[in-house]
Design a protein around this nucleic acid. Sequence first.
DNA 1: CGGAAGCGTAACCAGTAGGTTACGCTTCCG
DNA 2: CGGAAGCGTAACCTACTGGTTACGCTTCCG
Lengths: 118, 118
Amino acid sequence: MAAAIADPVRRAILELLREQPLPARRIAERFPISRPAVSRHLRVLRECGLVRDIPAGRERHYHLDPSRFGELSAWLSGFTSRAAVWGQRLDALETEVHRTRRDRRRGGAAPDRLEDTA
Amino acid sequence: MAAAIADPVRRAILELLREQPLPARRIAERFPISRPAVSRHLRVLRECGLVRDIPAGRERHYHLDPSRFGELSAWLSGFTSRAAVWGQRLDALETEVHRTRRDRRRGGAAPDRLEDTA
DNA sequence: CGGAAGCGTAACCAGTAGGTTACGCTTCCG
DNA sequence: CGGAAGCGTAACCTACTGGTTACGCTTCCG
């Protein structure tokens, strides 16, 4: 499902469908690629459940199915929520690494002076 | 950047690094693929800014860089936020389509009875 | 009824992504 | 100092992805 969003054309289609439902023809004519290519992109999105279609005569109306977006969003939130934590730990970690290297070179536990890292 | 997350191995690496920073060796040994393969995955993540590395002697400590995750998360929120809206409009739309088809077949404006859609 | 419109699929082709092995460079340590 | 450890990169191969054209099926309409 993440693979479906990886493609820029498919992302554009989703943004298009976010504004309003559209028949396949209308979607295809907004891209510089051929209609069958768009048709396959639509199939990928359909199989991922990101998009649904309603047959309407000889047309086929596509619309967004937002239910699936939550999954990826939830996965991402597992990372963004810890941003602050790591941000705080980061400089401390970097300092620690530098200190360790210096210690080993000197062969002893040096105080945390920073004259060569500043 | 979305392409970086598309790969399952890279997602697993990110989840791994979310727990704690790790040297490349430790990351590689948790996957059934070769070490150079993991090394390239790490490069992709690095170039996307999802991950950063700190040289530590002959090792290279990798850690998460959560700042970029917000971008994708923000893009996704543009869809999830409208979930309720479209969910409400959806059945109405579907009904409308069916009604239109029926109307055209009959050649007149039919009342919105639902005997064949219910 | 018959042609046009709207879509999807099949077959084919080129570019890329991800895997492997071989290799080279730096860092550690006996 | 010299071998081992830890990484990254290059070269190569295969598989998949995304694009195109050709085609077939259903639906509309003069």
